[in-house]
């Protein structure tokens, strides 16, 4: 699974291009201070960083869910397949093939699992037969959802809700999924399972991913390329395999150093002396 990173075609077609964007909430709170990144077709691109680094904001700037949270992209450009998507409606983007799976699942709690999945097909116009076929596809990737298809989503477990949210996004037949913090609040075993499915979807269905994740360790194992964000800026980027071996990344995000694992206290005091910016 690690080899994928090295063999990624560097010349792959660029799907998403975020160019030096700045995001301001409520007209005053500056959250992103110039973030640039590209997502190639067929790749898994990871967006890493701690709490408040701006990962979620970056994803929401792309999917344009910012607007409903009183956020605004004030500088820079966002292009999808060369076309500016800066001001387009989230619904238009879903039709173009870009869909976001939000942090914290955000299932429709009072709808059943199957109804949740079907809402993902809201923008589709290719008829019930095709939608039914994709429903089977989703159940194929997430067999657990099939067992629980008639339960209200609010009563399913955290892992199942993550699967519902991802399956719902899949139902829109996306080209790119913006996946926000899929590991949040899940047991390590489930995290592996979820990431395994992400990898499968990437390889078998050709879905590209832009993945925001705090769990640097897991993310860098599955992603092809990574960007590290700190305080609203990209401080480092590179192929996942390189980032994994980078001593600073090891020290700051993987909790390891040349002398082996350090205790929490030492890492924290070290960070105070040396920061990216």
């Amino acid at each position: 699974m690690l080899d994928a990173a090295q063999t990624t075609d560097v010349q792959a077609e660029t799907l998403l291009e975020v160019n030096n964007i700045e995001v301001i909430y409520n007209h005053v709170i500056l959250v992103l201070k110039g973030v640039s990144l590209t997502v190639p077709k067929g790749g898994i691109t990871a967006l890493l960083g701690g709490n408040g680094a701006g990962k979620t904001t970056t994803l929401k700037a792309v999917s344009n869910l910012l607007h409903s949270e009183r956020g605004e992209v004030t500088k820079g450009s966002i292009r999808y397949r060369g076309e500016s998507i800066h001001a387009s409606d989230p619904a238009d983007l879903v039709e173009k093939g870009v869909i976001q799976v939000m942090e914290g699942r955000h299932c429709f709690e009072h709808l059943t699992v199957e109804e949740n999945l079907l809402t993902g097909a809201y923008t589709r116009k290719d008829g019930n037969a095709a939608i039914q076929q994709d429903l089977d596809l989703v159940y194929n990737y997430f067999p657990r959802l099939k067992e629980r298809r008639r339960s209200q989503a609010g009563y399913t477990s955290g892992g199942e809700q993550q699967m519902v949210a991802m399956g719902r996004a899949l139902m829109s037949r996306p080209e790119t999924i913006l996946l926000d913090e899929p590991s949040m609040g899940l047991a390590p075993q489930l995290v592996e399972e979820i990431f395994g499915i992400v990898k499968d979807l990437n390889e078998k269905e050709g879905v590209s991913f832009l993945l925001a994740e705090q769990n640097t360790n897991v993310a860098l194992r599955f992603a092809h390329y990574g960007y590290i964000l700190e305080s609203g800026r990209v401080v480092m980027d590179g192929p996942a395999a390189e980032l994994r071996e980078n001593p600073d990344v090891k020290e700051f995000y993987l909790g390891m150093s040349d002398e082996g694992r350090k205790s929490f206290r030492d890492v924290r005091s070290y960070r105070r002396r040396k920061r990216w910016l």
């Binding site: 409903s68 619904a91 955000h106 009072h110 809402t119």
Partner: peptide, 11 residues
């Protein structure tokens, strides 16, 4: 149930 999630799936 959820305005944001509804927006995110294109409703």
């Amino acid at each position: 149930d959820d305005h944001q999630a509804a927006l995110s799936v294109g409703i």
